[in-house]
Computed example of a mutant assay.
Amino acid sequence: MGRPEKPVDRSVPARAELADFLRALKADAGLTYERMATASGGAPSKATLERAASGRSVPAWDTVAAYVSLTMTPNTRLMSPWDPMRRARVLWICARRATRAPYYLHKAPDPQMVWGVADFSRALRDQHVWAGCPTPGEMERMAGPGMLPSSTTRRIIQGQILPVDPAQAIAFLTICDAREMVLWIEAGLRALMNDRPHDVGTYAWVKAHKRMLAEQAESDDTAFADATVLNAA
């Protein structure tokens, strides 16, 4: 089974919790880092996998996702009360947040506090930090081809530009684990209407907001109808 691992570095508790979780998956799968690296074709490498579970640093999300996939077994899915990949994502975000978030950021930003373009830009940046500061490259890969080019994402993160349209904003916010997407699109629309009411691009936000409200109303109507049927049964 290979030589014993060094103890997990516990200087940052959130980092240590992620490392403990990864090591537990590896132990349950009965694998060595050599076998994991071979199964991955060397990407990530044995050294990268070992470092990911050391607790000394927070690995890239791509590495964590690969680690979880390599150690996933049918038993893992059956015996776990949670999805291992989702659990890994939560622990990774907490670890990144613990090591990268500025001292003033104690909770996720509230889109309802956005009134202007500067507010919206700042809220997007804070949400990115709250999600663990995924890199532009990571975000581009997670969003899919063409949706979040790394160069555009970098400029959004730096506060130089806003997303080009609501679809890009939704992709950015989804990767950054934002909730209440209707409120976020409403915030973007409010910011643009206050600061750029005559901008051609503002119309796209109007349409997106109306569509999301209609979808929400339809979902609420469906839920109400289902509840009515159940209560009558």
Results as ranks from 00 to 15, higher is better:
Tyr103Phe: 15
Leu148Ser: 04
Pro7Phe: 09
Thr38Val: 10
Gln160Cys: 10
Met193Ser: 13
Thr38Trp: 07
Arg100Leu: 15
Gln160Val: 14
Thr38Arg: 15
Glu50Thr: 12
Arg56Met: 11
Thr32Lys: 11
Arg86Pro: 00
Ala225Thr: 06
Val68Gly: 01
Tyr203Ser: 12
Leu22Gly: 08
Thr38Asp: 07
Ala19Val: 06
Ala37Lys: 09
Ala52Met: 03
Ala60Asp: 08
Arg155His: 08
Asp177Trp: 03
Leu49Gln: 02
Asp177Leu: 05
Ala65Met: 05
Trp92Gly: 03
Val8Met: 12
Trp184Thr: 05
Asp62His: 10
Met36Thr: 03
Val164Tyr: 00
Leu31Gln: 09
Gly41His: 04
Ile185Val: 15
Val182Phe: 10
Pro102Trp: 07
Pro163Phe: 03
Glu17Met: 10
Asp226Glu: 07
Glu138Phe: 10
Ala98Lys: 09
Arg89Gln: 14
Trp130Gly: 01
Arg196Leu: 12
Asp199Pro: 02
Gln112Asp: 11
Ile170Ala: 08
Ala108Thr: 05
Pro13Ile: 09
Tyr33Gly: 07
Asp119Glu: 05
Arg87Met: 12
Ala225Pro: 00
Arg211Thr: 14
Pro197Asn: 00
Trp184Pro: 00
Pro163Leu: 00
Glu218Ser: 10
Arg3Ile: 07
Met113Glu: 09
Val64Gly: 02
Arg125Leu: 09
Glu50Val: 08
Leu189Val: 08
Met36Glu: 01
Met193Ile: 08
Ala60Val: 00
Ala167Gln: 08
Thr73Gln: 02
Thr153Leu: 07
Ile170Gln: 03
Pro102Val: 05
Gly201Tyr: 04
Val229Asp: 05
Glu215Val: 13
Arg23His: 11
Ala214Pro: 00
Asp110Ile: 08
Gly201Gln: 06
Ser54Ile: 09
Glu17Cys: 11
Gly144Pro: 04
Ser80Pro: 06
Arg87Ser: 14
Pro13Tyr: 07
Pro166Glu: 00
Arg89Asp: 03
Pro166His: 00
Gly201Val: 04
Thr135Asp: 05
Val206Gln: 15
Ala233His: 12
Pro111Leu: 07
Asp83Met: 07
Ala108Asp: 01
Leu105His: 06
Leu148Ala: 10
Gln168Lys: 13
Thr174Met: 10
Gln216Pro: 00
Ala232Gly: 07
Trp92Thr: 02
Asp20Thr: 11
Val200Phe: 13
Glu50Pro: 01
Asp177Met: 04
Asp199Gly: 02
Glu138Gly: 06
Thr73Asn: 06
Ala95Cys: 13
Val64Phe: 10
Glu186Gly: 13
Pro166Gln: 02
Trp205Tyr: 14
Ala39Pro: 03
Lys46Ser: 07
Cys176Leu: 04
Arg97Glu: 01
Leu148Tyr: 08
Lys107Gln: 15
Thr174Ser: 15
Gly132Asp: 03
Glu17Ser: 15
Asp119Trp: 09
Pro197Cys: 10
Ser121Glu: 01
Thr99Lys: 12
Ser219Lys: 15
